[in-house]
Design a protein around this nucleic acid. Structure first.
Lengths: 232, 232
DNA sequence: CGTCGGATTGAGAACGTTCAAGGGGCGTGG
DNA sequence: CCACGCCCCTTGAACGTTCTCAATCCGACG
């Protein structure tokens, strides 16, 4: 929140990528670059599908989703970008997804041309940038398993653990800025199924609710067991 | 097949990446590098999950799959690599999937260190290499939609169209080197469901079978309509 | 305190899976 | 060259998980 205030005071001047605790590689990656600060209201479109993919975005505050719609209304969310995280890396020439603000959000836009130029100059940057995309590729392949071979309960448990690791909230409290519909479209389920799984988790005392958009993990081991019907 | 004979005669000497018609970018990418030729029998393991990811592979002949197993036996296939295509780009430090030969296969292994060194030297190579990984990332995100939001019939139709585009067979004849179980584990279905969808496609005269591992597309428009319940 | 969007809960249906049996193709051995 | 056997593919029937449809509930916000 203090961060958001800082962004607002810096706007509309250009800003450097801001430091976020625990935001290692991507931070180092973008540090020498200058971006434009943009503000979006909850639900606002950040870029449409098909737009030239000439920018990369970092979330300053709030949460962003990247989505695609099928003509019959089915929707898939490819990514939730939390504060500090990057998005906009869908498609090579043009965006294949559209991006929207899940909550009111402040976003820093970097020119892909600047990134390319800087990567050409600095071999360490090139290395950092390349291993970032490789990491995303590996994460995407992990998601194949989630979407193709896991049950609803496993998907939701994995999602909660992922958010717990990425969110920097204190002692096991997870913030869920997105709706049950968003979660469902991210996991390939329906909102009703997500709700039912969360209810079961609460009844089994694996998690406790603090309003609809916050929950606390009570038994992480059991949650991990439910998420990973898988040996490491 | 002539290609395979050439590979055999070149082995065990080192070889350059070979040209494959219609294999543009990755070809240009690897041209200056030298790799080792490896032979695998149908079903043989090419690398295990967890192995240090210090090589990148190009399929010379045959087909390769990259998979992960859950402890209860569920399996997911992340990729089928056909002749000319690359595989081994799962995981940054270590492979997160294992690779197996779907059919007898000849594979060329390139050292990632060689690739890194060459990319450091040649900016055009770096560009080519980077946009290759970005393209793979975009393709992975498309697969999220397939796995999370499409029906069995849509998945199978999309799979056939994809193979038709990648395989260089004549006039709409598709080769399916993999089993129905492989297809199922690639699409997040069961072999029975894949078989039933293929039967329906045959009955509706969208495709014709020529043995279990070859089929011909009779009505591509209808197949595309079935695959894309989606506007471009 | 009222209203509205999202969340929860319930009942029934559907799609895909599971379990089971039968059929076909290919390779091997006689 | 033919027969056998194995593997995989196909088909059927029953089951189950998840979806769909619908009603109610809750919480945020005016």
């Amino acid at each position: 929140m203090q961060l958001a205030a800082t962004a607002r005071s810096a706007s509309p001047a250009n800003v450097l990528p801001f430091p976020i605790p625990g935001f290692g590689r991507a931070q180092a990656m973008l540090n020498p670059l200058v971006g434009r600060t943009l503000h979006f209201q909850r639900g606002a479109e950040i870029y449409p599908a098909g737009k030239a993919a000439d920018q990369l975005y970092q979330v300053f505050s709030g949460t962003v989703r990247t989505c695609r719609l099928l003509p019959d209304g089915r929707r898939m969310i490819a990514q939730f970008a939390l504060a500090g995280e990057l998005f906009g890396l869908d498609g090579v020439g043009r965006h294949r997804f559209f991006a929207e603000a899940v909550t009111d959000a402040v976003v820093i836009a970097f020119s892909r041309r600047d990134i390319a130029a800087w990567v050409d100059r600095d071999p360490a940057a090139a290395q950092s940038w390349h291993s970032y995309t490789l990491e995303k590729l590996a994460a995407a392949q992990d998601r194949f398993i989630l979407l193709g071979r896991r049950t609803a309960a496993e998907r939701v448990a994995a999602f909660l653990l992922d958010l717990a690791d990425r969110g920097k909230g204190p002692d096991g409290v997870i913030e869920l800025p997105m709706s049950r519909y968003d979660i469902a479209d991210f996991l390939g389920l329906t909102a009703e199924t997500v709700s039912r799984v969360l209810t079961t988790l609460r009844k089994n005392r694996l998690v406790a609710n603090h309003g609809t958009h916050h929950l606390r993990i009570l038994n992480r081991d059991a949650l991990e067991e439910q998420a990973d019907e898988e040996a490491a």
